[in-house]
Amino acid sequence: MFHRNMRFDEDTSNEAKNKTLEREIKLARTIQMRLLNGNEPDIENGSVTGVSIPARLIGGDYYDFYLLPNGKVRIILGDVMGKGIPAAMLMILTRGAFRSAAETTKGPAETLTAMNHAMYNDLRTLGSFVTVICVDWCPNTKELTYASAGHDLPILVQADQTIRELPTNKGVMIGGLEDATYHDGSVTLEEHDLLFFYTDGITEAQDEEGDMFRIDRLRQVLIDHCHESVNDVQEAVTQALTSFTGNIQQKDDITMVLLQVNDGEADISSYNSPVL
């Protein structure tokens, strides 16, 4: 009887703990989603959208838009090592470092250098890192300036449905080297060019046989839909992934950001864009 009561108390206690934990995780998810969902950026001559789909309740992927006083928009997309709550905590750290750096730096390379400087000691202490791609887009000149800290460059699909390779620009991940420096590359985009930023949760999504979605399938989806709106292209990629993976549970966070050059149009939409 005594033991049975003890078991009952223990079960009740565990149940209460689980409920508390569940509630706190949901609150953490709410915080993360509120930080990611906010006012939409208002840019000229282009359309942007983005979405992040965590593999678990909360995730470690991150994207952000930051309007600069000179009329450019700074876009960042990042992937924190690991998954779930630990990655989500570092994602918030990354967001703070980017917001702080974006205010005081002149370009993507400077932004990444400042972020690495701010985050290096914490990331080394935790044995973690973040890969990041950062670009400045000028709606007037159509110039795209970009720098990478260990992240894949975006895919550029042109109006004639061909892929234009961006000149290579490789930098070490944030948290890899204390004195890491980065350099800017730049290209001039053309009317109706589509720029697609992504995390490896897309290219490494697996089907029931364990095959990965890979970059070639992603490129083909983008080529097939590049004349559609950014929201429709985003939906096409999401649908292609859903169709490919079937009943297989999502293993990694999936995040994409799209920028399309549209002269004279200002069609901004993002159902998961961060607060500006």
């Binding site: 890969t131 990478s148 800290a149 260990g150 992240h151 930098g171 070490v172 991940m173 890899g176 080297l177």
Partner: peptide
Amino acid sequence: FETIGVFQILDSL
């Protein structure tokens, strides 16, 4: 490894 910067870290350290 090249994209992420693993070899850069190896070479540097």
